[in-house]
Design a protein around this nucleic acid. Structure first.
Lengths: 228, 228
DNA sequence: TCACTTGGTAACTTTTTGGTAACTTTTTAA
DNA sequence: TTAAAAAGTTACCAAAAAGTTACCAAGTGA
């Protein structure tokens, strides 16, 4: 069953961004725009985890945090503005499990959520395969290491992630925009040609290694990791 | 089977902090908010160990301690406020096995628990490898000693723990935040660049010693202890 | 109390990366 | 056959990340 997350955040944009990312990761997301609503929705749906903004009008995050703590042990992650150092202390005092400083990276948020859920026992987020093996090619995202024909090849993050993504679904074509969405993040606004450049760089590392796979251009569409 | 611990502590925050840490270490934790409840839960679940706060309203820690001692030899660790020196004497008089002064470090608590359990025979906490050996490198967390190329090298705690953590999962990359969570504790409030500095200090101690391993930077991701 | 150790911060330097722009080549379709 | 569109390629640069150094605050022990 899906893990449910309640977002209590008055800034609509931040909330939507979070929601989009979390849903993509398979979480069931509910959003509350203020503290009062947050508490109400909390009681209604009893989520597995709460993301709670500190700065909110009327009923602030700490009040909500204490209120939730008074009735259950649901993990709470606070979202605090940068510089408010005391928040860290407050957080623990009021029973928060972790806190994230704005502005935050989505990856950061996901990592924290998984960490907190892991800590609070029970819920286990099933992890995907982090290691792909093809003929003379190993893509290991745990070691963050690319092995080509038995040799380790230094490969920057973006290239690793792009290759890993393509190779996770062999023979499937992705458009540049799909790749930008999935690898760069849907909040990336740049030239789609940047994909070409990364493909080029990957090809330099991979060319002539094996007959059984290659990074193929699908003209007018995009790229795929082709496996014969 | 998991080792069970009963926490009797009226301060919800402290209790939760303890619970979180202990569960992460694999203990089965039960919490009681006051002395009466504590005694009741003690009788219900017969835990392997009791963490008992001294200062509690209604029925204080000493009473609970004596009550438990009257019926079993279950190890008891008292949690006392700083300055209450007499507690030490009281503790022994009332049959406590150990005592810890607030505010305490979680690591301290874990160490005490393991020590007490070891002493009270019976329960054996199967502990992980506390000693890692690589080519010309010995990381001994029991002796808290680092041996490089046959020579002991004075190494401060944080560096030892960081190295030990990284070396416990060779070739696996950890981000700075993961390392902060795991080595510094998830309740650490500080700059993630502090990891860099510790890595630097470790490298000074380790550089040029062996070809078969090294502390490697994974650009854009984090660090790993690489073993060839 | 004072000297020493440790852990952490801040500031500055160096390295690496990701992305853009410009130019070239290939493919498609009229 | 040729022009337009798409993709390949190259070089370069600003920003991000990591390395490095110096310094400071808190804790420790003599």
């Amino acid at each position: 069953m899906a893990v449910s997350v309640l977002i209590v955040e008055d800034d609509r944009n931040i909330a939507e961004l979070l929601q989009m990312y979390l849903e993509k990761e398979g979480y069931a997301v509910t959003w509350a725009a203020d503290g009062g609503q947050g508490l109400a929705k909390y009681r209604a749906i009893k989520p597995d985890l709460v993301l709670l903004d500190v700065m909110m009008p009327v009923m602030d995050g700490w009040s909500v945090c204490r209120a939730i703590r008074a009735e259950a042990q649901t993990p709470i992650i606070m979202l605090t503005a940068k510089g408010e150092t005391d928040d860290k202390v407050n957080g623990l005092k009021n029973g928060a499990d972790d806190y994230i400083t704005k502005p935050f990276e989505m990856k950061e948020v996901l990592a924290r959520i998984e960490a907190v859920l892991r800590r609070s026992s029970g819920v286990t987020t099933e992890k995907k395969a982090r290691r792909l093996v093809f003929d003379k090619l190993i893509i290991d995202m745990d070691a963050f290491e690319l092995t080509v024909d038995g040799k380790k090849v230094d490969t920057p993050p973006k290239e690793m992630e792009l290759l890993f993504y393509l190779a996770s679904s062999p023979n499937r074509v992705y458009t540049r925009n799909q790749l930008l969405d999935e690898v760069w993040g849907f909040d990336y606004f740049g030239d789609s040609r940047t994909v070409d450049v990364h493909v080029k760089r990957l090809r330099e590392k991979l060319e002539g290694v094996s007959e059984s796979w290659n990074l193929k251009t699908v003209w007018g569409v995009g790229y795929k990791f082709e496996v014969l």
